[in-house]
Structure formats: C-alpha cells, structure tokens
Design a binder for these strands. Structure first.
Length: 847
RNA sequence: GCCGGAGUGGCGAAAUUGGUAUACGCACCAGACUCAAAAUCUGGCGAGGUCAAACUCAUGUCGGUUCGAGUCCGACCUCCGGCACCA
C-alpha cells in the first residue's frame, strides 16, 4: 500500500484485475436471484460526455450494491450504432459509416473501461452488425404477417435539415428531435407499424408500473396516447342518403349544435359539393387551408377560418337542420375529421361562431343550489350576448327536449346509448396516438426486408434469406433519397415468389426499432437462430431497474412498451411491461462562460467537460463520487470543479485513515474483545451501525447523495475517536476495523477502485466481490445509550434534558417541569397540559 | 391557455408517520504547520442582537388546522418542464 492516494495507479491495477478475472460476467446458470440493471443504450459518437458519466455512475452504483448483496447481476452494454451522425460523416467527409462507427466504438469502449464501469463485456452488442439487424428484419416480417406493418401514402413529418422522414414521436412539438429544425409535411409512401392497435393497452397497463415509473413520464405517455371517451354521431345530410359522422366527448351538448364542421381534407367534401353553387369557392378554400398546413412549422395557432358550403345536415336528436361548414381548425387526423359545432360550450366553436356570427345556444347550466336561478337563466332563449366565453363545465341540461333537467354525467351515457339504439351513433373511444412511421430515407439503418415484384406485388423477404445486408458502399449525395436506391446490386433482385426480376425496398428502418428490443438480446447475444431464447429471457427480464434521461419519454420508452406487448403476443415473453422500475436522471449542466446561466453541456456553448480530462486530473473514483453526491439523481446536476476536489479530498481522507491503521489492524484479532469497550469505541460502533442501516434503506430509493453524506459522517466519527493506532485498546481497534470495513464496502458502489485497494489492504485477498458482502446493521448496537430530549414551552424550544433510553413518560414530564430554563418560562403561568412524545420531545403548554 | 413539478443559508442540498430546521459538502473567515505559498489539520459560518449571552425573526406570500407545520388544508406569487386548435 502506498502512503499517499494515487488514483491513477489504483484504477489501472483494478481495471486489469476485473478484466482478467472476468469479475462482472453474469452466468445464466447462477442459482442466486437475478437483478437486471440497465442504462439506456448509447449512440457511439466517439466520446462520452458528463451526462453519460452520470447515467453510468448511477447504474453502476446500483449494480455493485446488488452484487454485494448477493444478487446475480446482469449489467450489460452495447451500441445504438445505426443512425444519423454516421451518415452525416459520410455525406460531409466521405468516410465509410461502418468504419466511422467501429472506430468510435473502440474509442468509447476505452472510456467506459477507464471509468471502471462494471459491465459484462462478453454480452456486448451493436445494432449495425448483421447478426443484430437480422432480427430487426425478422420482427418486421412477423409484424407484416400479422398486418401490423403496412405501407401507405400519407402526409408525414419531413425534416428539411436532415432530409428524412420522422415519426410523430420524433417531431413532437413540431420540431425535429435531433436537430431542432421545424418539420414540414410531405406526402410520401411509408411503412408504418400499428402501434395504435396497442393504444388501449399502453394506457391500461400503466397500472402495472404507476408506482415505479416517474409520474412525469407516465403523464407524457398518457397525454401522447390521448385516450378520450365520447361518442360517434351520424348527422344525415339533408335531402341525401349521405351521412357525416362526428366524434364528440360532449354528446350532452348536442342540442346546442349550430353547425357541422368538416376538415378541409375531409373525403366527403367532393361528393357534397357535386351540385353546390359554391363548389369553386369551397374547393379554393380547402386548397388554401391544405397548403397553409403543409407550410406550417411551429408557428402559433392560426386564426380560425371557414366557409359555409351551402348544404344542410340534420341533428339526429333535435331534428333540426343546421349548416355544414369547412374550417381550418378541424383536424383530419383526429376522430372522424368532422365535428359538431357547439359554440356555447366549446371555446374553439365559440371563437368560430363569433367570427362568422353563428348562433350561440346555451344548453348546459351550472348547477346551483338555488333552483330558481337555473329556471331563470334557462328562460333566456338567445344568450349570445350574455356569454363572454364558452361554458365548458359539466352541469345540467336545458333547452334539450326530453333530456332537459338531466345531469351532464348521466346524459353522456344515456344519450350515447340512445344513439346506438336508434342506429345513428355509438359510444366510442378515440386515441391521439398515430401509427409509427418507420421508413427512413437513409443508408445507415436496417433495410426494410421487402421486395417489389411487377407480377406479385409487395413480397416479404423469406426468413431464410435474412439478413438483407447493407452493401459496403453507396453514394452519399444528401439528396433526400435513400442512398441505397443508387446501389444497383442492392436494388435489383429476384422475386422470392415467382423468380422474376424485382426491386428491393430502399428505405431503412428507424433506429428506434433497434432499441425497442435490445435488452432482450443481452440475455442471449450470440443466438443465430432466434432473436433470443425465450427461456433465457425469462431468466433475466423484465428489467429490474432502467436508468436514462426523460427525453425518451414518448419515443424509446413508448416504442419499447409496444414492442414488448407484440413479443408477448407472438409468445416470446410472458409479461406486459418490459421495465419494472424506471429512473430518469437529471441533466448535467455547467455555467456558460461569461454568464450566470447553467445549461446542458454542449460543444456549441463551449461549456462541455471532457470525462477523460476529469479522470486524468482527479481519478474516475472521484469523478463518479462527485456526480452522485452533488445532487439527488433526478435533479439537475451543476458541474463544479471545486466540488470534485471535495470528492478527492474525502477519498484521500479515507485512504489516509486506512494507512494509519492498516498495520495495527493486521496484527490484531478480528473478533470483538471481551473487555469493556471505551465510550469512543461504543460511539463509533453505534455510528457504524446507524450508517449501515441508513445507507441500505437509502439505496432502495436510490437516494445516492445522502448515502455519500452518511459515509462522510462515518469517516468524521472515525476521526473523532482520536485513538493512536500504536497504543489503542483491542476494543478500539475492533471498532475501527468494523467501521473501516463497513465504510469500504459501502463506498464500493461509488468509487470501486479505491474500495478494492483498501479492502485488499485491510487483509482481504481476492477482491471485494469474492470475499465481500454487504454489511448488516445491528439495531442493538445502533441504539443510542442516552437521549437528548428537547423541551418546548408552547411549541418553542427552550431547553434539553438528557435521559436514558428507558425513561418513562412520567419521568420525562417531571424532568421537563423541573428544568431550570423551563421554569423561568412557566413561572407566573398556568400549566394547561404537558405533551410527552416518548423518546422524542416534551411540550409544556401554558396560559 | 391547459397539465405537471418545484420554491429551505452565499451555493449544491438534508430533515421517518407533523415533533430539536439548515445534516453532508462547496465557498468563505480565523488559527496551526511553513521563510512563504500550496497541500494538510483545527475551529467558525441562517439573519438581527450582545463583549458574551439572553432573546427575537427565519423553509416563496397570506390565511387556516394543531400543544406543535418545511411537512397537512385553502388562496395567491414566482420559476422550471411538458403539451399546444385532439372536439
């Protein structure tokens, strides 16, 4: 053991040791209970940033903790290695995306090893290798067989900057998830996966995880799926056999409908206009709305515009004829693309009605305890001038024929049933989520395994022909067309069905396909006859703890839930939810130079911190310790150079403490001595066992910052013992040994290298994992010998008394009342009562 | 606009079921060691008040419940995040 703490030597030594002994390899046949700890799959950009470091430090702390507790821990790593940056490098610098990616993997693997993250490298996977993407294609075929993968032409999100299509999830908020550019709409033929078939389950199954996933992620998913209960209602077109179906969540307001409003893209418009005098105007209007929509990026809501098409519809409840309009505020994507307009009870309809002076008819009144006021309000036939804005609450129905007097809540159910019974509608549930568009006009992705044959049409590649391999070279023009389209050897093929000439699909799959199921592959990473063996998946999954940023709340985390449900439906797994517990860690920020702003580290802001530089300057152990100590894991973490120095200081103090004692410890018995121990030794043992209890319980909630604080307190207590190793009694030595060994075991999840080094120097050979085990708290030893009981007078702290742990309530009461300081406060007052909380405090209430 | 989350020292943050507010660290101040500095060690560190103490005031604001509120209830303010015509 060196006298001084040299992190560089220690870290190299133990990283080699772990590698040579394959310390972190998880065995499939290990009989101990498993724990699957996973951090989100990284993209191999070539360099780690501090956000990664934080992510892996958290995961590794948990993995170590569980290992020391005796679990068989699976902690794997791999590469989300398809995707945009490699392709950009190819376009801009002419490099081969495969070479570029492989080089980056080598660089990053080195960084992980220098950080000392305890991965099972034998299970490493990479999405861009044919052994992996073969199974992306296999899953695609399984979905295609079941009608869950389909192709259609539709307006899709187009990123003008990256020249490719994005899914709805990737263009949430109208901007590209990667580059932030405003997305446009384009009509393209695209492959979709029917995630909408699973919409109900995606909401319903949240019940299984609602206590173990962050509420903000669940909320965003709930909003994204956008389940809404309501009813379809058919409005007959007057003097025609056509019908317009609308969706409403407020069927109780239907007597207030003063128009039916269609989206400009509604398919029925053409038919309705066949004989209309207004045909040209309406068509011109619809075209204008469409072009505005296509051009619209993130801009604010447009002013509502519409046009009356001069055809009437019949309200099936009231029999009333009302005009049909086309307007820009009705979305074709949602519901039926048509709505009933109820200005009195919907803000948007209200605004629209005001602009075009449509009637506003009130049919819901606020429920008042004063029945007369309802009756009074209800007598006002036309209240348009009386309503400053729409009344959107539930209430009581008025001016609604036989339904008047009903409560909204009841009417919603009864009116939908009535519509069903009379054949003009039904109760219905709609969802906001759309199918997942997975086609990408890219080279660097898994090719969609489809062949187009002039004779046979769309033909799936037979399973035996998988993988459809990417060619080695392609021309990267950045034109927006898939580079694969220019590779004749790839495109031209023969039809698997008829053997005739045929062409391959040239789009590749969204990289989120790769990451939707990768953690199952870790269970069986070299399987070449199936994506994974279901038995091995059963052995390891679902993931016990998943850790990553919340930026994937409605991308990766919703896709992977969908994928898992599909895998369940084809018999590969037997559960509904892939992730038992989810932690979304906070961002790592740094001050932007010359400002007071803290922002996520980035190259463009110049506030990035290079993990390798931190390791070189302070050591991986200190860097990791600081990121876990400085803030709760889910909070923003503000980077601080002086903070990391504090972490080094702590590790050095631990090291020095061991240096002081290790010789004496190696010459002393490790059993507790029979002799009476000193007060200092008893205090140290008490602190040791209190710390073990606190650390163990804090680990369960991943309160890592307070664990580090507790370890620091324990070290401070060790310093307070103030015993000389040369002359200390056997009792003191035993207390020191117990404290140090416990401290080291509990430090291992945070700073494993120095923990290993110390463990060895405390006389344990073979490394922490083989001989170590998590320390056990002894509640007897943790108990205080004497209590300091605060005494309050009227709720204000006035004094403290010392008492034994066995003190009775009556004794405490007497001690409080006789306390000198307390007496000064109660003199001249009447003691009304004395509240004694056993073991905690006394409050004397005086008047 | 709607929906979430959060407001505690100079800073990051602690605080079982309501029960000693500010643990731990950073920064800062003083002392020891040193020719000196760094490192290290020791002590101090919410505000006011005092030689020192007593004491008073402090967990965004105002009110409420309670013997007792950072914690529970109500109203409001501010900040951050998400969604944004979803019928």
């Amino acid at each position: 053991m060196d006298e001084k703490y040299f992190p560089e030597n220690i870290e190299k030594k133990w990283q080699q040791h772990w590698e040579q002994t394959k310390a972190f390899q998880a065995a499939d046949d290990d009989p101990r209970p498993r724990f699957y700890c996973l951090e989100m799959l990284p993209y191999p950009s070539g360099y780690l940033h501090m956000g990664h470091v934080r992510n892996y430090a958290i995961g590794d702390a948990l993995a170590w903790y569980k290992r020391l507790q005796g679990f068989n821990v699976l902690h794997p790593i791999g590469w989300d290695s398809f995707g945009q940056p490699a392709e950009q490098a190819a376009i801009k610098r002419g490099v081969n995306p495969r070479d570029w990616t492989e080089e980056n993997i080598v660089l990053m693997r080195g960084q992980y090893k220098r950080l000392g993250i305890s991965y099972d490298w034998s299970r490493e996977i990479a999405a861009h290798r044919p052994e992996y993407y073969k199974w992306d294609q296999w899953f695609f075929l399984k979905m295609f067989e079941r009608g869950l993968a389909y192709k259609k032409k539709s307006p899709v999100n187009w990123c003008p900057n990256e020249r490719t299509v994005l899914s709805n999830e990737q263009s949430s908020g109208g901007v590209c998830w990667r580059c932030g550019a405003s997305v446009e709409k384009r009509d393209l033929e695209q492959w979709f996966l029917r995630i909408t078939d699973y919409a109900e389950q995606l909401v319903e199954d949240m019940k299984q995880i609602e206590d173990s996933w962050p509420e903000k992620v669940l909320k965003r998913q709930r909003d994204w799926v956008g389940r809404s209960e309501g009813a379809y209602i058919d409005f007959a077109v007057k003097d025609s056999d056509k019908k317009i179906r609308v969706f409403t969540t407020r069927i109780d307001t239907i007597f207030g409908a003063t128009a039916v409003v269609l989206s400009a893209e509604h398919p029925l418009i053409d038919e309705l206009l066949e004989e209309s005098a207004l045909k040209n105007e309406v068509m011109a209007f619809a075209a204008k709305v469409k072009s505005e929509k296509a051009a619209r990026g993130r801009e604010d809501e447009e002013e509502k515009e519409g046009i009356n098409i001069g055809v009437l519809a019949v309200n099936p409840f009231s029999g009333e004829s009302i005009p049909i309009w086309v307007a820009n505020y009705v979305l074709i994507e949602y519901g039926t693309g048509a709505v009933m307009s109820v200005p009195a009870h919907d803000e948007r309809d209200f605004e629209f009605a005001q602009k075009y002076s449509l009637p506003i008819r009130r049919v819901i009144e606020r429920i008042s305890h004063n029945q007369e006021s309802i009756a009074h309000d209800a007598t006002h036939e036309d209240q348009s001038t009386a309503m400053p804005h729409a009344f959107t609450d539930y209430g009581i129905l008025v001016n609604s024929g036989n339904w008047s007097g009903k409560l909204s809540q009841d009417a919603l159910v009864e009116m939908a049933n009535y519509a069903g019974e009379h054949g003009f509608g039904q109760a219905a549930i709609t969802y906001r989520i759309r199918d997942w568009g997975i086609s990408r006009q890219r080279f660097w992705g898994a090719p969609v395994p489809i062949i187009y044959c002039d004779k046979c049409g769309v033909v799936p590649v037979p399973e035996k022909d998988l993988p459809v391999r990417l060619p080695d070279h392609a021309e990267f023009t950045g034109s927006g067309e898939s580079p694969l389209a220019g590779v004749a050897d790839f495109v031209n093929t023969t039809c698997p069905t008829c053997g005739g000439t045929a062409k391959r699909e040239t789009d590749t799959m969204d990289t989120f396909v790769d990451s939707s199921w990768y953690f199952f592959r870790y269970c069986d990473p070299r399987n070449d006859s199936a994506p994974f063996d279901p038995e091995l998946a059963k052995r390891w999954t679902p993931i016990d703890q998943y850790i990553g940023g919340d930026s994937h709340a409605v991308m990766h985390l919703i896709y992977t839930r969908f994928w898992t449900k599909f895998m369940r439906d084809i018999g590969l797994v037997s559960f509904d939810e892939p992730v038992k517990k989810l932690l979304t860690q906070g961002m790592v920020t740094n001050r932007v130079e010359g400002t007071d702003e803290w922002k996520a580290m980035s190259k463009s802001l110049g506030n990035g911190v290079d993990p390798d530089e931190m390791i070189a300057a302070f050591g991986a152990d200190a860097a990791r310790l600081f990121t876990l100590f400085a803030a709760p894991v889910e909070n923003e973490l503000r980077w601080s150079e002086t903070g990391i120095e504090g972490a080094v200081r702590f590790l050095r103090r631990v090291y020095t403490m061991v240096w002081r004692w290790h010789e004496r410890l190696s010459n002393s018995a490790s059993a507790p001595p029979g002799e009476e121990s000193s007060a200092g030794a008893r205090a140290l043992r008490r602190k040791t066992h209190q710390t073990i209890a606190k650390v163990t319980s804090d680990f369960e909630g991943l309160h890592l910052n307070t664990i580090v604080a507790a370890l620091m307190e324990l070290l401070n207590e060790l310093g307070d013992l103030n015993a000389d190793p040369g002359t200390a009694s056997e009792g003191d030595v035993f207390a020191v040994r117990e404290a140090l060994e416990s401290l080291v075991l509990m430090l291992a999840p945070f700073s494993p290298h120095v923990a290993e080094e110390i463990w060895e120097n405390l006389g344990h050979a073979g490394g922490l994992l083989s001989s170590g085990r998590w320390p056990q708290a002894d509640t007897e030893l943790a108990r205080r010998e004497e209590l300091e009981i605060p005494i309050q007078v009227n709720g204000k702290l006035r004094s403290r008394v010392l008492a034994s742990t066995e003190v009775t309530e009556e004794e405490l009461r007497t001690a409080a009342l006789n306390d000198e300081k307390v007496r000064a406060f109660i003199e001249g007052h009447e003691v009304v009562k004395v509240i004694v909380v056993p073991q905690r405090l006394v409050n004397v209430v005086v008047r």
